[in-house]
Write a protein that binds this DNA or RNA. Sequence first.
DNA 1: CCGCCTATGCTTAGAAC
DNA 2: AGTTCTAAGCATAGGCG
Lengths: 68, 68
Amino acid sequence: MGRAKIAMELIQNDKKRKITLNTRKQGLVKKARELATLCDVDFSMIIYTDDQETPHKSSLRNQINSTV
Amino acid sequence: MGRAKIAMELIQNDKKRKITLNTRKQGLVKKARELATLCDVDFSMIIYTDDQETPHKSSLRNQINSTV
DNA sequence: CCGCCTATGCTTAGAAC
DNA sequence: AGTTCTAAGCATAGGCG
């Protein structure tokens, strides 16, 4: 099946939400890189995510810093 | 005409580059908002652009801070 | 400049493996 | 859990008003 339309609201299902986060984060970074390349601009992007995979390692928020 | 494919390199034409910057920046912010909504993450994005429209007003770089 | 349009290509949700 | 596939939906280049 192709892409189904999803509601613009918090995804309740943990697994789906995590997949969506990763997929879309990737797409976002790609687009950011493209913009930086096409228009010669400096770019900084920070996504603060709760790391739900290793809660025992840290209760602090992880910082994913994508500098392009 | 529909969307033409563009090369992934610096857009030399000033006018085109500026249009592309604005259009894509808008799209990027939209996607960032979606990601923040769908996955409940905090998001910060900064694009440093040379303001080519008012070079007489400031030689400093403008900082466009889109916090979602 | 701004907005609208439309064709085209890119993104990505869901499935199948 | 990862990988790959596919099509639905979305982003957007270029044109026009």
